[in-house]
């Protein structure tokens, strides 16, 4: 038992310290590392509670999610030009701490109102062992009692995916196929009219522009990079 307690305090302590570090760290990449550390240690606590499935799902889902978050930092933020601490819009500076305090009060109220003497559910260790483990018990619940909620959550996620695709879609699909490479020195050619380099749509105008060149040597117009590798002689 003493070992359990020690590991609990270790995991809990690290996850708390990492959570503080996440808020305090100036570099967003460091914040992301602290976030992963917090989530990982929380997963460890889940394992100690016997909820292995929850722990594995937590690591799989959040590891991927935080990774994408980190990609955003690396691609969108200039590390030499980070904002100063305490900067930002004045409204943000008031609302931010206010929301934090409200959240803290909420959590404190929830803990204070915890029904210590309330009835325990039927998820006792014996019942869980009877169905074969926490994964099985979890699956039984999610696909029977909470099926409707589960389906609603899946639908919300699906809408998110569809929304992301719609946002990423080019305005008109037909005009996006565009790489053009000309002639045997692959790529752009000084002899061509300006603007016929790479990433210009293959249009009738391009064909007319290259028509004169085609008389002197072989000119290849392709619509995508894969066609580029197949050089056929005409």
């Amino acid at each position: 038992m003493a070992w359990n307690l020690l590991f609990f305090y270790l995991l809990g302590g690290i996850s708390l310290l990492a959570a503080i570090g996440m808020v305090v760290a100036k570099n967003p990449v460091h914040s992301a590392i602290f976030l992963v550390l917090t989530l990982f240690n929380t997963a460890g606590i889940f394992v100690m509670l016997g909820a292995e499935f929850l722990a594995a799902a937590q690591v799989i889902v959040y590891a991927g999610a935080v990774l994408v978050l980190m990609l955003f930092f690396l691609m969108l933020i200039d590390p030499q030009n980070l904002p100063e601490r305490g900067g930002g819009h004045p409204v943000q500076r008031i609302i931010g701490p206010l929301l934090g305090v409200i959240l803290l009060l909420e959590v404190a109220a929830a803990i204070a109102n915890r029904a210590v003497s309330g009835t325990t559910g039927n998820a006792t260790p014996e019942n869980i062992a009877f169905v074969g483990g926490s994964t099985q018990a979890f699956g039984n619940l999610i696909f029977t009692q909470y099926l409707f909620t589960f389906e609603v959550v899946s639908l919300v996620l699906l809408i998110g995916v569809v929304g992301a695709i719609v946002l990423a879609l080019p305005e008109r699909l037909g005009e996006r196929l565009s790489t053009i490479s000309l002639g045997h020195p692959r790529g752009t050619d000084a002899a061509l009219p300006e603007g016929t380099g790479a990433a210009v749509p293959v249009t009738r105008a391009d064909r007319q522009a290259t028509a004169a060149l085609e008389a002197t040597r072989e000119v290849i117009l392709v619509r995508d990079p894969d066609a580029y590798t197949e050089v056929k002689s005409r």
């Binding site: 992963v36 499935f53 594995a56 690591v59 590891a63 991927g64 483990g133 994964t135």
Partner: peptide, 16 residues
């Protein structure tokens, strides 16, 4: 109990 998921989870942590 979730050995296979454990392997997958740690596989995705390695990329960090």
């Amino acid at each position: 109990n979730v050995g296979a998921l454990f392997l997958l989870a740690f596989g995705s942590l390695g990329v960090y």
